[in-house]
Nucleic acid binder design. Structure first.
Lengths: 248, 248
DNA sequence: AGGGCACGTTGACGTGGATCAAACGGGCGG
DNA sequence: CCGCCCGTTTGATCCACGTCAACGTGCCCT
């Protein structure tokens, strides 16, 4: 009976804790002390795997938890009664999903995995409870929500004032910068979404997106091969964001 | 000396507390018990009057507090390096301003009064402190932030998928509904902002806004006289939001 | 390995809203 | 009460992007 101790730890118990997570610098654990991290670990009881093209939650679902992305890639979108929809964001590892549901206790958008993904489920009632006791967690969470608001303002600016090529340049630079923050190459990456999804996000039609990609390639800013993007001239792209207007 | 008791309370001491505020149903105090309200009153120490066309805060200002609007009307806008800007929202009594500043400790947009206004100054550090102890306050604040995120998603949808007239119809219905929530007429109100500001908010030029107003008037949906709007056919406006597309 | 299909590219053409321009009107200061 | 000026309205023209259509291509499933 002494082999009991030798029984291999089952996969189920191999819970990857926040304290061990290599995304903790990007996520809620940021700046927490070791004992505080332990308490956060308890909070994040379950994790959930989401297959490509399946929903993490849907608009109308009752809100119970927010989700931290461990691995993978998501989009969120909102639907209008008449069938039109709009992608409101693309989320990658370390980012938080689901905060739209707090206000009404029901989610107001869909979250769909664009590749096989895994999220940490953070029961919201427990998060509020713990953040009453752990100041750094409370503050981090407020920052995460505020960052989402600031991001949204940037997107409004893009949708309200930019022309098609500026929008795509801004999109590529944003992706580049986020990949870099996660330790991937900022010059070369694989887009998980279709042209149509990019278009929806940027308020453009897929043909316009495709044409802008081709133009950028012709002009030597990037090289495109399907979903694989290599950015050749980052400063050049950045210049596209500024006033085309020669002078006035 | 017995007149002492008759000395009129000076204006300075007539602090209008949250507990007395007729906006408490719309604002952070919602659902708080009387003793909790008293603690919130202490928190909201100062109020501040903002003259028309002056700034409550500017992009780049260091973030210290959020603001609850007591009276008046504001716009927030973001500025691009090249001078382009975009109005990201119009705020009225009972709404909260300044949450964009939490994420970086600096404000990321400008808040400008569109009429003489007054705000309650809520020092953010103290709000976090108190919301650790008053659960309802914590939850309300989270809801307020979440509501802002949901609102932003709606605006993205508008900017990304709607045509000019749909945008203006959505805008008018939104204003109408918010005036109603505050006990004003939903049919008749005074817009505080210019056509250019409406245009900036809706991602349109002022001429387009003006034309759409005229069209709505010609078609009998509304009557416009400068900034004074009377909505004649609310269901009609609402229908404009749905699929123009006859069938498909 | 083959075949189908979803995704992507490219071209031709149409249009909604931007741009440019001019005139109007109402509120405010003198 | 008059005149100025900012905000608004309206018209004429232009163009960026949408729409429609045809063709290419890589990937997945059997």
């Amino acid at each position: 009976m002494q082999e009991k101790a030798a029984i291999p730890i089952s996969i189920g118990h191999l819970k990857t804790a926040c304290s061990q997570c290599n995304l903790r610098e990007l996520c809620l654990p940021y700046g927490l002390s070791d004992p505080e991290l332990d308490r956060l670990d308890e909070l994040v009881g379950t994790r959930r795997k989401i297959k490509r093209h399946s929903h993490l939650y849907r608009s109308g679902d009752s809100f119970e938890a927010i989700y931290a992305i461990r691995t993978g890639f998501f989009k969120t979108d909102v639907l209008l009664e008449d069938g039109r929809d709009q992608v409101t964001g693309f989320q990658m590892a370390g980012e938080i999903l689901g905060m739209d549901g707090i206000s009404t206790e029901h989610h107001s958008c869909n979250a769909v995995a664009l590749e096989d993904s895994e999220v940490c489920v953070i029961p919201f009632a427990k998060l509020e409870e713990l953040s009453r006791e752990v100041n750094a967690l409370q503050h981090n969470f407020h920052k995460v929500m505020s960052r989402e608001i600031v991001r949204d303002h940037g997107l409004m600016m893009l949708l309200g004032t930019m022309r098609a090529e500026e929008r795509l340049a801004a999109f590529l630079l944003n992706m580049s910068q986020r990949f870099m923050a996660r330790g991937y190459s900022p010059q070369e990456f694989h887009l998980r979404m279709t042209r149509e999804e990019i278009g929806s996000y940027l308020g453009l039609k897929l043909e316009t997106v495709s044409r802008a990609f081709s133009k950028f390639q012709d002009e030597g800013y990037i090289s495109v091969q399907q979903k694989h993007i290599r950015i050749i001239d980052i400063p050049g792209l950045r210049k596209l964001l500024n006033p085309q207007t020669p002078h006035c």
